[in-house]
């Protein structure tokens, strides 16, 4: 386990009796790419705002680099770069002017940092364009350029792929990976797009209705994800009934993606295939598969909802 960069303990935020964030614990170690997962309104942004000192927790604590965020934590924020929700810029200034303003406010003397940031984010060619003329994807990258300008050790990105097209999403993903690998920045990225986080994160925290349901490394999560046999047949209801009655398979369900999933480790695929074909059912696909992060997330959230 690496050195703790960010530690959140029992973090709560209540608004007029509504628990927006309820007892969240998190730990980011050096070198992590932490995927902070949750549906819209789950409490991700509120948690991040508390981490950055933008809003005050009702209770609990946030420690950045071992120092509690709150009064007098300004110096530690120098080690953090962030893009929270939507990157705001002065629209009448160019990209490089916006970055230069940030450079001066951070007290950075070296102007080469502007060039480095713009090159890293692929915006060097657009440096003299006004921020108001930037697309959302470019603004997201400019936001990241600004966030990394002062060479932070921790980068916090709140929904950086929100509203982007698939190409834009891919560009941001590659950029985040590059920052983690080349600049050795520890990254926290919040998202509700699970497939993105799955490709990116080394550690995942899943928040639902303000409650942290799970925090584990991606490897641990992969081990937890169950294997199943996926079937595509021409008659799902009959197949489901047959598998239950003839083979005693209990955990067999029809998913929205058009697959019949059988979660039963003991059964052999051949046995199922033979049974279905014998009964006149056409089996077009039969594969051994593993739950994706999305499946796991849905299971967890449904479980959390049932508990709640």
């Amino acid at each position: 386990m690496g050195q703790a960069i960010l530690q959140v303990q029992g973090l709560c935020k209540h608004y007029k009796g509504v628990k927006a964030v309820d007892g969240v614990d998190m730990r980011l170690n050096q070198g992590d790419i932490y995927g902070f997962l949750g549906q819209n309104g789950a409490g991700k942004t509120t948690t991040i705002r508390m981490m950055m000192g933008l809003i005050r927790p009702s209770s609990g604590s946030v420690k950045l680099f071992g120092e509690e965020v709150g009064k007098g934590s300004n110096a530690v924020l120098r080690k953090v770069g962030s893009v929270i929700e939507y990157p705001g810029f002065y629209p009448n200034l160019t990209a490089i002017e916006n970055l230069d303003l940030h450079r001066r406010s951070m007290g950075i003397k070296d102007k080469r940092t502007l060039e480095e940031s713009l090159h890293t984010t692929g915006l060097w060619e657009a440096r003299n364009r006004k921020a108001s003329n930037f697309s959302l994807g470019m603004k997201q990258r400019l936001g990241i350029a600004r966030a990394i300008l002062h060479g932070p050790e921790l980068l916090i990105l709140d929904e950086p792929t929100n509203g982007l097209d698939p190409m834009g999403i891919k560009e941001i993903r590659l950029l985040i990976q590059e920052l983690a690998q080349k600049r050795k920045i520890t990254i926290l990225v919040s998202s509700h797009i699970l497939s993105e986080v799955e490709q990116l994160a080394t550690k995942v925290g899943i928040i639902h209705r303000g409650v942290m349901l799970e925090e584990s490394t991606m490897n641990e999560l992969k081990h937890k994800n169950r294997q199943y046999i996926g079937l595509q047949v021409d008659d799902f209801a009959k197949s489901q009934a047959l598998l239950r009655e003839e083979l005693g398979i209990r955990d067999c369900r029809m998913e929205d993606d058009g697959w019949l999933r059988i979660y039963d480790d003991d059964r052999q695929p051949g046995e199922m295939n033979r049974l279905l074909v014998r009964q006149g059912i056409e089996v077009s696909s039969l594969v051994a598969m593993k739950d994706s992060l999305e499946d796991y997330f849905v299971r967890l959230v449904e479980g959390g909802a049932a508990r709640g």
Partner: peptide
Amino acid sequence: QERTINNLLTGPHS
């Protein structure tokens, strides 16, 4: 209105 306040207040200034 320009949402630049987040950037201002997450810098190392009071």
